[in-house]
Design a binder for these strands. Structure first.
Lengths: 124, 124
DNA sequence: CCCATAGTTCGTAACTTATGAACTATGGAA
DNA sequence: TTCCATAGTTCATAAGTTACGAACTATGGG
């Protein structure tokens, strides 16, 4: 089993970050990691917004996040602990991650709002 | 030939924007459009950062930008004029496009800088 | 040593993207 | 009109990417 590979911060690209964050499952994972107090292991995400994610798929998503430079993964015993590399990325691309996370959250809020309106028929 | 389709602003998604902007050619096109004073036609981009783009590919890139909601395309005679929808998008996702464009530009500047250092050997 | 847990890798089917060739639309010239 | 050039789209297909079940690997107990 090959070791977990992380790009050095100079090799992290905007394209890579945007691509990684353009997948809703990965974006959700990243946002939860960013909001978490401590490192999370992969299995914490076998369930993402009501959707079951097969573990091979999850493993690939973590690899994508790792190779884009968004997360750092470290073996700890039988588990892999994941943390974001947001500080490094902020150093290189200030404001980028914050804007992306904020936009994802705004969209989530807008969807919730739209759904609640849909369930209450409009005044005729 | 089917007419040019644009999503309404409520149907524009963060995922879609990120995915569209994660391609370097599309990002370059978007950034140039955003900086342009007037609408540009597609053929202005048959050449993007020293790389020739086949016109069928270019057409697909414009379609991707259009369907992600990033640009508006309008037929004007034999040409198609393209403009960004940045104001609408800023209304829905404030700061997102600005951060992405800024990051792409920062990366471009960093690459230029790295290249100029590489051509001058380090002091031994 | 064996098992359970956590995750990775592999193989393949499904999807996406790039591009040449053929097509369509528009506007002007003959 | 008819013909042609220009600008772009669409189609077919080859190449690349992604999803996920099955098989595998690594680690830490009993």
């Amino acid at each position: 089993m090959r070791p977990l590979v992380h790009p050095s911060i100079e090799d992290v690209t905007v394209e890579g970050i945007l691509h990684a964050m353009s997948d809703p499952v990965r974006a959700q994972i990243y946002i939860q990691l960013a909001g978490a107090e401590c490192a999370a292991n992969c299995s914490n995400f076998l369930q993402v917004s009501d959707k079951a994610i097969p573990k091979s798929t999850l493993s690939q998503h973590f690899r994508a996040l790792r190779e884009a430079g968004l997360v750092r993964s470290e073996r700890q015993g039988v588990e892999v602990k994941n943390t974001t590399r947001c500080e490094e990325i902020n150093g290189r691309f200030p404001g980028l991650l914050e804007a992306i996370v904020k936009a994802h959250q705004a969209q989530f809020a807008q969807r919730l709002c739209a759904a609640s309106k849909a369930s209450v028929p409009p005044p005729s």
